[in-house]
Structures are given as structure tokens and as C-alpha cells.
């Protein structure tokens, strides 16, 4: 027989996300601690420092991960958009 399936919107597993969400929202105290001046940002402007250095490669890979993982989200993806399940 199938194990009990609890489909409450805020299941215990989902609640595990809470600390990380609090971390995201609570990390704003970092803001203002550091001031990198415009003329000090040449290294940060290097393409390989970008969040997504190669958008086309990233799109292909998110597609691959979408049908090779039971997870979705976090990288701007939605976990849908094709019948590759």
C-alpha cells in the first residue's frame, strides 16, 4: 500500500526552507557594510564573474537538469515548459 501522502501546502519538508528564506530576507544587514567604489569594479565586470556567464549554455543545462532531477527552481527556472518528464 502507498505510504500516506500529505499534501498540505506547508508540509514539514517545505518548512525546512524557512531558515534559508529567513537568511535571504535577513541578510540585508550585510548591505552597507561594504562599499566597493566604481573604479574598483573592473574585476567584478569580467564575464566569468557574471551570475550566468553563458546564458545559452545555462538554458540548455537547466533543460537537462529539469528532466534528470526531481527538483526545480532557484536558478530562474520553472520546472515546466516541455513534456520531457
Amino acid at each position: 500500500m502507498a505510504k500516506p501522502h500529505h499534501q498540505a501546502l506547508y508540509s514539514a519538508h517545505l518548512k525546512r526552507l524557512l531558515p534559508l528564506l529567513i537568511l535571504i530576507l535577513g541578510s540585508s544587514p550585510l548591505a552597507g557594510c561594504v562599499n566597493v567604489r566604481p573604479w574598483e569594479r573592473a574585476i567584478l565586470a569580467d564575464p566569468c564573474m557574471a551570475v550566468v556567464p553563458d546564458p545559452e549554455e545555462a538554458k540548455l543545462e537547466q533543460h537537462l537538469f529539469a528532466y534528470r532531477e526531481g527538483s526545480a527552481g532557484g536558478y530562474g527556472d520553472t520546472g515546466g515548459g516541455c513534456g520531457c518528464n
Partner: peptide, 26 residues
């Protein structure tokens, strides 16, 4: 039907380092 909400927060930590925290609800 899929609805997705994303949010991100990016902080420069030095002239060589940055931190990004992001989250999604789908």
C-alpha cells in the same frame, strides 16, 4: 499550470567577491 516567483539579493563583498542569495516558489 505553473506559477513561479523568484527573488534575489546580491551584495558586493569586495572588489573581487560577491554573494548572491536567491529563492523560488513554484
Amino acid at each position: 499550470d505553473i506559477h513561479a516567483v523568484n527573488a534575489s539579493f546580491t551584495q558586493l563583498l569586495s572588489k573581487r567577491t560577491y554573494l548572491q542569495l536567491s529563492g523560488s516558489i513554484i
